[in-house]
Design a protein around this nucleic acid. Structure first.
Lengths: 194, 194
DNA sequence: ACTAGATCAACAAAATTTCTTAAACTACTT
DNA sequence: AAGTAGTTTAAGAAATTTTGTTGATCTAGT
């Protein structure tokens, strides 16, 4: 079945046959339709989701209805509301499918038991947590220090696949600018290039 | 505030000032955007929803992706996944807004306490449950005994407001036929009439 | 063989979402 | 005071999705 996630974990820890099997069996494959929410405010995020195929956006709606994109994720990335998942508290984020997608879901209890029973799993989850943390930090930094245009250029060169795949409003909101402004930045580039 | 639901309950039990107040305070007014889900499989349906204004559809997606509409509801009707709500078990249904809507939500615990503390509330919830049951039975019967065309005619004469308000695919699926077939039935009628 | 109805495919119409552009505005910088 | 970086509002164009229609072909039951 999902050899993809085994390839993934194999990059971090070496599992034997049995462990691989155990690991796989903790995940459930779920199809998610475009626009469907997999996490919703006030509900506890029960799963951590590995995206087999698809694209998701995690966002908050502020008190005045402002939409802030916390995260965008596509194939081979993880997504959930970590504050909700890790502490098993009601979520504050929405996580929505931007296209028809397939995810592998592991639930909180299963993850806990994996980590408890085998050091390797503990290691694996630590590594992805650390990487997630580092990623968030880079992002925060880039938001604080770079201009809107730099942030966009930076994003394009780092994640060209994502740029082509997600709607512009999602990207603009992720990069912390209005869609109008992003639209202009893009046009400027195009006229420069030609 | 929501005198509408007081008018509603007044049809069934007579409440004094204080009871009315108590009852009202158990409900929260919530706006729901078109296409938003208020119940989703795998999540527990925490609320019973009284539709102040709007339209909803409750449906299941079968194993092969077949979409069965369990219920359609508009202004002044109730909707939720009752199997999930009553037993507080994970839902199997989707309940989606067919248009921008406003509902009054009561949650399970509050409803429980209303019913426990005052006989009248117990009576009220019994009555709406009985009526719901009777309605479901009529529907089941009509599905078993009538032809697609009869079911449609029947529905049109009983709920003309709904017919005009919900998309045809929803109605077709509710009436247990394909949208193509419903489309044909409708055309037949029109040509008959003129 | 007839009927009630489904399925498939192609298409048209309607509605919605997404993107673009322009104009006027705000807050900083210089 | 003028320029830069960016927002807001509004309007419209373009793209995509959703919804509904029609015809052709199929199936199960009578």
């Amino acid at each position: 079945m999902s050899s993809k996630i085994l390839d993934y974990i194999a990059k971090f820890v070496k599992l034997d046959e049995e462990e691989a099997h155990l690991f796989c069996n903790c995940f459930k494959e779920v199809k998610v339709k475009k626009r469907q929410l997999i996490v919703q405010p006030n509900f506890i995020a029960k799963h951590r989701n590995y995206i087999l195929k698809g694209a998701f956006r995690a966002y908050v709606i502020g008190d005045e209805g402002q939409d802030h994109t916390i995260n965008i994720a596509i194939d081979d990335w993880w997504i959930t509301d970590y504050n909700s998942y890790i502490y098993q508290q009601p979520a504050t984020l929405f996580v929505v499918a931007l296209e028809d997608s397939t995810v592998l879901q592991i639930d909180y209890e299963k993850e806990l038991s994996l980590k408890k029973q085998n050091h390797k799993f503990e290691t694996f989850f630590r590594i992805i947590a650390e990487r997630g943390l580092a990623f968030q930090q880079r992002r925060l930094l880039s938001n604080l220090t770079q201009s809107a245009e730099e942030r966009y250029e930076h994003f394009v060169s780092n994640y060209p696949q994502i740029v082509q795949r997600v709607p512009q409003y999602a990207l603009a909101s992720y990069l912390g600018m209005t869609t109008e402004f992003l639209s202009r930045i893009r046009n400027k580039r195009i006229s420069k290039k030609s």
